[in-house]
Design a protein around this nucleic acid. Structure first.
Length: 268
DNA sequence: TCGATCCTGTAG
DNA sequence: CTACAGGATCGA
């Protein structure tokens, strides 16, 4: 389910549960299957302490006390939590690490598309080669977005989804940002004018910023995020409903095998 | 660049 | 039953 704002909320919640720079209780003492990686690889984390939780794009990084780290990607339906006991796990738990204090870090993922992998110290550069800048980093500038847009003729929505121009946008927030910037999702990226790109740049940060605020609140309540409840979407999932700006009907169109929602009147 | 694929669940 | 799902990769 998660795009960057939800992944960030997961990271914060994990940090709070483990207390960043975690004590002896954060030692990993056992692990269960994690796929598609082998259990063997997961076993390399046993005996290590989790010292920090980082996020890069939609990836979560569990730092270990020897410099190695676990990379978790939640894909569509994953959630990473600290559970009271690894022995009492739901059938949808695809991976788990038992901690010394009896709790467990658990990947709960009904659809089982989520991924975990183990990595050596210093391998972030290679691992994230091809991943674009964080949307709130200085590296994500208007010039950067412009450069990325001018370099391709593919539809702007697909460019935003690729994680290369900027990290962290998914199907919802890409559509929302394009709506806010009044850009048609199928518009070839290289054709976007400077003012349109500036509007998109602002919209990306606006949309993600607002979503982060509400994702955090949603996470403060028990039950985690409920679909559509954590963020007031303007277009996503609203096919046939009135556009909030012009009252015309929101449309859905396939793009790259996914559904894109947009207002044909407001987004040219 | 497209479609298939990974998986399971849910809505129509 | 089919369509679709807040993602990403792979091979044709």
């Amino acid at each position: 389910m998660p795009e960057l704002p939800e992944v960030e909320a997961v990271a914060r919640k994990l940090r709070a549960a483990l207390q960043d720079g975690g004590g002896p209780s954060c030692e990993i003492v056992d692990c269960g299957q994690f796929r598609p990686t082998t259990m063997q690889e997961g076993a390399r984390a046993i005996g290590r302490r989790i010292t920090a939780v980082d996020r890069r794009g939609k990836h979560l990084l569990l730092r270990l006390d020897d410099g190695c780290f676990l990379r978790v990607h939640l894909r569509m339906t994953g959630n990473l939590t600290v559970a009271p006991d690894a022995r009492l796990r739901a059938s949808t738990v695809r991976a788990w690490f038992a901690l010394a204090d009896g709790r467990a870090v658990v990947l709960d993922d009904p659809r089982a598309l989520g991924r975990i992998s183990f990595h050596e110290p210093g391998s972030e550069t290679e691992l994230f080669r091809g991943l674009g800048p964080e949307p709130f980093d200085a590296a994500f500038s208007l010039d950067h977005l412009t450069g990325a847009a001018k370099a391709t003729k593919k539809p702007i929505k697909l460019l935003l989804m690729e994680q290369k121009a900027v990290a962290g946008l998914g199907n919802i927030y890409a559509a929302e940002a394009l709506f806010q910037a009044a850009i048609h999702p199928a518009r070839p990226a290289h054709k976007l004018s400077r003012p349109r790109l500036a509007a998109l740049y602002t919209a990306i940060r606006d949309v993600l910023g607002a979503a982060m605020a509400s994702a955090e609140q949603a996470y403060d309540r028990p039950g985690e995020f409920a679909e559509g409840e954590n963020f007031p979407v303007a277009v996503y999932g609203r096919e046939g409903e009135p556009c909030l700006r012009c009252a015309g009907a929101i449309r859905r169109m396939p793009q790259g095998g996914r559904s894109t929602y947009y207002c044909p009147k407001c987004q040219k």
